[in-house]
Amino acid sequence: MKRWETEGIAELADLNLPEEEHLKKGVAIIECIQEIPCNPCVDACPFNAISMENINALPIVDYEKCVGCGKCIEVCPGLAIFVVKIINEKAIIMLPYEFLPLPKEGQKVKALDREGKEICDAVVKKVREGKTNVITIELPAEHAMNARNIRVR
């Protein structure tokens, strides 16, 4: 049994990760690793970068086409999509956030890993309110693949 099946935590080996060059421009990483009947991300992508064989299949991101706009983050019912961009030593992560209070731009928050553990400080760069709010944070590049939530306050 895989860890995600018993604990609900994905490991990097479970994910289909982009190459370094893709991370430089920023791309969507879809942490959707179990077949469920769901496809709004496919319809939401303005660049047709997300494809799915059928409604139960796993979504596949074409990292060449993806520009990291994050439109898919907002519609994903599973809140499973993150946009990650790496510029030198910094990582910029866009993540879904459905809690109150909403952080403010420039505010310092704690970045959390997939287990909800604090891993480092992060700075909020942008707050995009929508169907699901999308928060953009900046943090050290080494945490790019682990920071998946924030704690405000």
Partner: peptide, 23 residues
Amino acid sequence: MPKIGGYFVHAAKIRRCGVPIYT
């Protein structure tokens, strides 16, 4: 059960908020 019965994505959402799941 030995495995989480619901969708992984739902489990992941609460795990990253720090809620443990004991199977």
